[in-house]
Design a protein around this nucleic acid. Structure first.
Lengths: 210, 210
DNA sequence: AGTTTGCAGTAACATTAGTTACATTGTTCT
DNA sequence: AGAACAATGTAACTAATGTTACTGCAAACT
């Protein structure tokens, strides 16, 4: 198991820290679709993502969802970082986008390592930084783009994340994640199909050249 | 000067750290409207906000702006935190919303203190956490609210930040920050006035009960 | 095979937001 | 005062998005 750890985090952490992570961390496999964190949850351990992808969602008062961003291997969840320390609740929902493997590190270690290892501090800071930048990108999309452009970005990203030219989503699911209605998505997808950029099928979409 | 530092950050930092901050930090006053950071800037020092408020803006390719959030006393700019370490450029613009006072801390200290002082680590982590939460709130507004609701939130926040029931903005300025057109803002403001929630004047708006 | 269910296609319409154009009213400058 | 300018008010229109309602089709179930 230490090998996977080294593959994904070896360039970041020194051998000693890798050892520690391997000792105290527990490996965990999650299946696609599994809910890994819910809004309001208290977090007691920190996940380091070894493989797969996690999608991070936000929800409003009416239960409407919005996709914020994806986490990929080498990432961690910024939310847990201070939830752990600060005893605050999660503001977001995390769901496995694909099957995924992760290492769960106990909360206490996080702060100890932050004092002990410079590389750990760097990792934590950079994680925050990356999450912030993803949030900026998300805000750009919502604020500056129209729905058709957001849809194209969504399809590209979804395809990239799953390493598959087929996006396995229904129109309704896409509508949820972009926070719009199914009819709107169907309409825009049909336009993309007419432009020969995608091909529509039941339950999946083939990405051609977008 | 050490007194102001203690007032705002005394509950966070131990005496020794306060001393260090006071020694290496330089106090700086900025006037309302001053541009404190531009998109693409490299950041070489970290600001701790003593008084006043800073607005943080995002810009798209066409030069259209969007207000992200405000920083208030006791806050710091999350962007600088890793820009300093990572040598990356700023993704945002910072403009003094009111006259403000801040302490500029040299970059190098930031990492040194992170290893040395637990309270500093806590502060930095919490800063990130707060910024992330503000980003969530911003995304909620953009994604889930209609323009009239966003406008009401904006006016409330603006009034709160400046501690003034009068918002000194033109319709055009508001339109920029909410990324819409002046006509739309004028229209919605007029509705709010008809609902007796505000009173419109040239160059300013009186907040009554929103 | 027949029924039920979920997904997708589409028309028709409502609402919200963005755009253009122009009038009106203060302010500032000379 | 008169000219020039900035801010606001409003109408009329367009575009984008959201909503309702109904259709056909495919998969799943009995």
């Amino acid at each position: 198991m230490i090998q996977e750890l080294k593959n994904n985090f070896g360039h970041l952490f020194e051998a000693e820290l890798l050892q520690e992570i391997n000792q105290v961390g527990t490996y965990k496999d999650v299946a696609e679709g599994a809910k890994m964190m819910e809004i309001g949850d208290y977090v007691r351990s920190m996940p380091l993502l070894i493989s797969g992808a996690i999608k991070i969602l936000r929800e409003d008062n009416n239960g409407d969802e919005l996709l914020l961003y994806f986490l990929e291997k080498g990432d961690t969840c910024a939310m847990t970082l201070t939830c752990c320390l600060g005893e605050t609740k999660s503001e977001i929902r995390a769901i496995a986008e694909t099957d995924a493997t992760l290492i769960m590190v106990p909360v206490q270690k996080m702060e100890i390592w932050a004092g002990k290892y410079k590389s750990w501090r760097k990792f934590v800071f950079e994680s925050y930084h990356n999450r912030l930048n993803e949030m900026f990108a998300t805000i750009d999309s919502i604020a500056f783009l129209k729905m058709d452009e957001r849809l194209v970005k969504y399809l590209k990203e979804k395809s990239r994340i799953s390493e598959d030219r087929i996006v396995h989503s229904t129109h309704q699911e896409i509508a949820y994640e972009l926070h719009t209605s199914r009819v709107v998505i169907s309409r825009l997808l049909k336009k993309l199909e007419n432009l020969n950029k995608i091909t529509l099928h039941r339950n999946y979409i083939l990405i051609k050249n977008i």
